[in-house]
Design a binder for these strands. Sequence first.
DNA 1: TAGATTGTTAATCGATTAACAATC
DNA 2: TAGATTGTTAATCGATTAACAATC
Lengths: 212, 212
Amino acid sequence: MAKRKPSGAVIKRMPRYYRLLNMMNEKGIESVSSSTLGDRLGLTASQVRQDFNCFGGYGQQGYGYNVKKLLAELRNILAIDREHTAIIVGAGNIGKAITRFEGLAKENIKILALFDVNQEVIGKTIADRPIYDVSELATYIKEHNVDIGIIAARKSVAQELADTMAEAGIRGIWNFAPLEISSDVPVENVHFVDSLITLTYKMETEDDNDED
Amino acid sequence: MAKRKPSGAVIKRMPRYYRLLNMMNEKGIESVSSSTLGDRLGLTASQVRQDFNCFGGYGQQGYGYNVKKLLAELRNILAIDREHTAIIVGAGNIGKAITRFEGLAKENIKILALFDVNQEVIGKTIADRPIYDVSELATYIKEHNVDIGIIAARKSVAQELADTMAEAGIRGIWNFAPLEISSDVPVENVHFVDSLITLTYKMETEDDNDED
DNA sequence: TAGATTGTTAATCGATTAACAATC
DNA sequence: TAGATTGTTAATCGATTAACAATC
């Protein structure tokens, strides 16, 4: 019985809870309190409880949260208990790294194929996934019912690719190109250069080091 | 003359302004108003002006902001007008992709070397950067005055690596391992699986599509 | 000058924190 | 039962938005 509609800030915290709970589960921890969870993630116990209560009451007074049960709830909320298929456009450094990264399979993401413009790589495979000509992109998406389109191409073609994908029926876009994509379907960006620049900012702005 | 101390939310927006301004500059656009900037990034004009005024008054009434001047200010604020040196721990898929990615050089980030535990890659190079044994990490950092430590290794060793780096005098950590790193130096995380999971959440939660 | 757009103060909105009754 | 910890309401805090005088 969800109460407040989860805000963007809440949603961004869910994967962090999920990651932490997974580690706790691997260590054999059976239950955890909101205050422990908060301590580990730099949040207040109150905030942790508020966050979970956006989706439902998963805890138990005097006991806390059952790790396995909460994990199952989070998997369901985050939709990673179901399989999602994906294709990657761009078989360069980033496309290759994503394809070879085993972590995606753990979250039920299945990479089906890659697409590129470079004739030298078209026809080859990366980690057993075929690389097709990008001209076949729309047809492939329609025929294979692809859920997620991953953009690992140059920024000059990224918006155009997003449009093609959305039109072909893709349901979400994961964008690695350094620009703002606009689309009717949900878009998540991995702007890692932004992240690095944020780091240099922090490094040069440090005044009060909070020792830990 | 800075007014309000920039909050985390403000800082996260600065690289987005920087990216957009760069594109505008490449297109030869000379000046831009806060409302145009806001439109392109999904922010209000008010917010854009508030953001910049955390750092200083870079605009001009009746004219807006000079693109080149604002870019220079942002480069200075974000500290990317100065060179930063970096090393990468982990010469796997992610380490390789970062090393080969040309975008970092544009922001004055210079990757000096990589480190790994795998004897088969130690001694080889990636894009002309040497791969050393991770046992030499602390010595190398001390001798070469490295600014940034990039963690592209397994999560089980990530915290330990961060500790070693910080102790050896690194000034900031860019972490790709899927866990929360704690350190005395600033840490920026690229949790791209979190991002993907956020996408699957959004995909399955879509109720009102806001057409654009 | 008239028009445009900033810098900045005040108002609003939303998110975080505190508090506590409910209950395991 | 006593202790612990949740779910939830109310209070606080901070960030976003609105408004407008200043000025190019």
